[in-house]
C-alpha cells in the first residue's frame, strides 16, 4: 500500500515536470508563430537578460523551500543592496569593484540575520522574512529618502549590462553559473541531502546526528548573497539604483520554484525543474508582449503576470486535485 503510494507520488512528480516541459514547448511553438520577432537571436538574449535577476532569486529560493522554509525578503533585499551599492559608489566615491564586493557581503549578512532569527530563536520563517521584507525595503527608502535615484555609474560597470561573451549576455553567464552552483549544491553534496531530509522531517534529521540548525541557516545566507548579486545585475541593466528595485520579485521567484515542481512543504524538488519554471515564466512574459493584439493594447506585463499567478494556483492545486480524484475513484471499491 505504502509502496504503491510512493510510486504514484514519483510518477506524479515525473508527470509534473514532463507537463511543464510540454507547456514550455507549446509556449515556444505558439510564440514563434504568433509573436513578433520572438525567435530572433536578439530577442533570445533579451529574454535571458530580463529573466536573470528573478532567475537568480528563484535558484536561491529553491533550497530554502527544500528545507520547508520560505524567504519573502529577497526582493526587498535586492532593493536595499542596489541602494547600498549606489551609496558606496556615489556618496562615498568608492571604486566599483570594492563596492560590489562589500554589497555582496552585506547581502550575506542580511541573509544571516534572517537565518539567526529562524534557527537560533526558532521563529517561523514566514513571519521573520515578512518582517525583514518590510525592514529591508524600509531601509532602502530611508537611505534614498524615498525618491533619490542613483545614476551615472562607472561606464565600465554599465557596460556589463550589455556585455556578451560567446554571444551570450553576461546575465546568461551569471545565471548559468548560479544554476550550476545550486544544482551541484542540491544534488551532488551532503548539504543538499541534508536540506531534503530537513524538509521531510527536521526531528528525524536531528536523530541522524546532522546539525539541523546549521544546515537550515545555510540556504538563507546563500539567498542573501544571491540577492546582492541580482541587485548588481539589476543596477547594471537599468543603469540606475532605486529603493523600489525588485519589488514583487520574491513572488516571481517562489512561483518559478513551485511551478518547477518543488514541494512547498519541503523535501522534494530539483534545480532542473526550477530552471524550467524560470524559463516558462520568462518566455511567457516576453512572448506574450510580442503578440500583436497584446502589443496593441499595451497589456503585455499585466497579462504575463496574471497568467503566472494563475499557473501557480494551478500548479499548487494540481496534486491535491489528483489526490481527490484518486480517492474518489478508490472509495467505492474498498
Amino acid at each position: 500500500m505504502s509502496s504503491q503510494n510512493s510510486r504514484s507520488i514519483k510518477s506524479l512528480l515525473l508527470r509534473h515536470e514532463v507537463l511543464l516541459v510540454l507547456v514550455l514547448v507549446l509556449e515556444i511553438f505558439y510564440f514563434l508563430n504568433n509573436a513578433r520577432n520572438f525567435g530572433t537571436p536578439d530577442n533570445l538574449s533579451n529574454i535571458v537578460r530580463h529573466s536573470a535577476e528573478i532567475g537568480l532569486l528563484a535558484l536561491a529560493m529553491m533550497p530554502v523551500i527544500l528545507t520547508g522554509g520560505i524567504d519573502l525578503s529577497v526582493g526587498s533585499l535586492l532593493g536595499l543592496c542596489a541602494v547600498l551599492f549606489g551609496v558606496m559608489t556615489h556618496d562615498w566615491h568608492w571604486a566599483t569593484l570594492p563596492a560590489a564586493f562589500v554589497t555582496i557581503l552585506l547581502g550575506g549578512l542580511a541573509g544571516a540575520f534572517n537565518a539567526t532569527l529562524i534557527t537560533a530563536l526558532r521563529l517561523p520563517p514566514l513571519i521573520v522574512t515578512l518582517g525583514t521584507y518590510s525592514l529591508f525595503r524600509g531601509l532602502a527608502e530611508a537611505i534614498t529618502q524615498g525618491t533619490k535615484t542613483y545614476r551615472s555609474f562607472d561606464p565600465g560597470f554599465l557596460g556589463l549590462g550589455e556585455f556578451r561573451f560567446l554571444g551570450l549576455p553576461l546575465q546568461g553567464w551569471v545565471l548559468g553559473f548560479a544554476a550550476l552552483f545550486f544544482g551541484i549544491l542540491v544534488h551532488l553534496t551532503v548539504f543538499g541531502r541534508s536540506f531534503r531530509a530537513i524538509g521531510y522531517s527536521p526531528e528525524g534529521t536531528r536523530y541522524a546526528g546532522i546539525p539541523v540548525l546549521r544546515r537550515t541557516a545555510m540556504p538563507y545566507i546563500l539567498a542573501g548573497l544571491t540577492a546582492a548579486v541580482a541587485a548588481l545585475l539589476f543596477t547594471a541593466r537599468l543603469q540606475q539604483a532605486r529603493a523600489d528595485a525588485g519589488t514583487g520579485y520574491e513572488l516571481a521567484a517562489i512561483t518559478a520554484v513551485v511551478l518547477g515542481g518543488t514541494s512547498i512543504f519541503g523535501g522534494s524538488g530539483t534545480v532542473y525543474g526550477t530552471l524550467t519554471g524560470i524559463a516558462a515564466i520568462a518566455i511567457l512574459s516576453n512572448g506574450i508582449s510580442r503578440v500583436p493584439a497584446v502589443l496593441k493594447a499595451g497589456i503585455g506585463g499585466e497579462l504575463a503576470s496574471l497568467l503566472t499567478g494563475a499557473l501557480l494556483l494551478l500548479a499548487l492545486a494540481a496534486p491535491a486535485l489528483v489526490r481527490l480524484l484518486q480517492s474518489a475513484r478508490k472509495q467505492p471499491t474498498t
Binding site: 510512493s6 548539504f191 541531502r193 528525524g204 534529521t205 541522524a208 522534494s268
Partner: peptide
C-alpha cells in the same frame, strides 16, 4: 529512525556524511 520518503541508501548514509563523503561530495 527512517526518513520515509528518502531512498534507503540515503537513509543508511545519513549519520556518516562527513566520513563517507569526503569534501562533502556525494
Amino acid at each position: 529512525g527512517v526518513i520515509l520518503p528518502l531512498p534507503i541508501a540515503h537513509n543508511m548514509t545519513m549519520a556518516i556524511h562527513r566520513r563517507f563523503f569526503p569534501g562533502t561530495w556525494l
